[in-house]
């Protein structure tokens, strides 16, 4: 099988994700509205209560809006990663997953293509958010928007991998509510996305340690530092390691036998 076959298959998966994304305009809107609500409404209300001291990578005092912007970028990636899990379950239920599985291209390559496609769509949304946030007064260094790109790609891959791994565990669309309650919310709130961890430590030592062990915390820090043209090596190592683990788990746990829904009931 030559390289062109792999390339065409990759292009096909990416194009389909974009076609579906364009069809679902409300998905794009909600992906933007959610973080913007946090940025404009939540941050305005909590600015006084949650003052932020000088902490790396920031060289001076910053507004609360500026602090939470990287976390909100990761929030978009998080929701998109989980959305990919939802779309995999949907494809399985609707039968269109079989088209993917019938391809002669190795399934591991198809899953990697799917992951990259999810990452690309997430990036479009993140940069759209950053553009609007800029208008709202959150102005990271212009060069930071470029240096943040590899960090955002890595985080998108991490969260997409977790989403694909979860999709292998979710049997029905209805179970997706559980993902919201047990994955998205804990991951987001038990991280440094909305408040620095030293503040969390002031309130609760054990909550602080949960946040420390949450890979999403390190994903947020990786993006935060990259946005200010700095490299947080610890965050990079943890995010990269976790991505590899979940990407491997996603490929291993992908079970095509679940795509033939009615089989056990009637042969």
């Amino acid at each position: 099988m030559n390289l062109n076959v792999y390339l065409h298959a990759f292009t096909g998966v990416v194009k389909r994700e974009f076609w579906r994304f364009i069809q679902q305009r409300s998905r794009f809107l909600s992906a933007l509205v959610r973080p913007l609500l946090w940025l404009v409404v939540f941050a305005a209300g909590f600015r006084a209560a949650l003052g932020v001291a000088i902490i790396p990578p920031y060289a001076t005092y910053i507004t609360y809006e500026t602090y939470i912007a990287p976390g909100l970028c990761c929030m978009i990636l998080l929701f998109n990663g989980m959305q990919s899990s939802l779309s995999m379950v949907y494809d399985r239920e609707m039968g269109s997953m079989k088209v993917l599985l019938m391809s002669p291209v190795p399934r591991s390559w198809l899953l990697i293509s799917k992951l990259l496609a999810i990452a690309l769509i997430s990036l479009v949304q993140v940069y759209a958010f950053l553009a609007i946030a800029w208008l709202a007064g959150v102005e990271p260094p212009a060069l930071g928007l470029i240096t943040a790109l590899p960090a955002l790609v890595l985080v998108a891959l991490l969260l997409g991998s977790i989403g694909l791994f979860l999709s292998a565990r979710i049997r029905q669309l209805e179970n997706f509510a559980g993902v919201m309650n047990f994955v998205i919310f804990p991951m987001f709130f038990l991280s440094s996305a909305l408040y620095p961890l030293w503040k969390m430590r002031e309130s609760s030592e054990w909550l602080y340690w949960i946040c420390q062990y949450n890979p999403f915390t390190h994903a947020v820090e990786l993006v935060r530092f990259a946005l200010y043209q700095q490299l947080n090596l610890q965050a990079l190592a943890i995010t990269l390691g976790t991505t590899l683990v979940f990407a491997t788990l996603a490929v291993i746990s992908f079970n095509p036998e679940r795509t033939v829904r009615a089989a056990p009931a009637k042969a």
């Binding site: 099988m1 292009t11 096909g12 389909r16 609707m94 088209v99 002669p104």
Partner: peptide, 26 residues
């Protein structure tokens, strides 16, 4: 297949393009 495997929200050509790409066609 017995159960339709077409993507209802995509056009006829998009469905065919997706399948063809998965089989390595330009």
């Amino acid at each position: 297949f017995q159960q339709s495997t077409l993507d209802l929200d995509l056009t006829v050509m998009q469905n065919l393009e997706y399948h063809g790409a998965l089989h390595g066609l330009s």
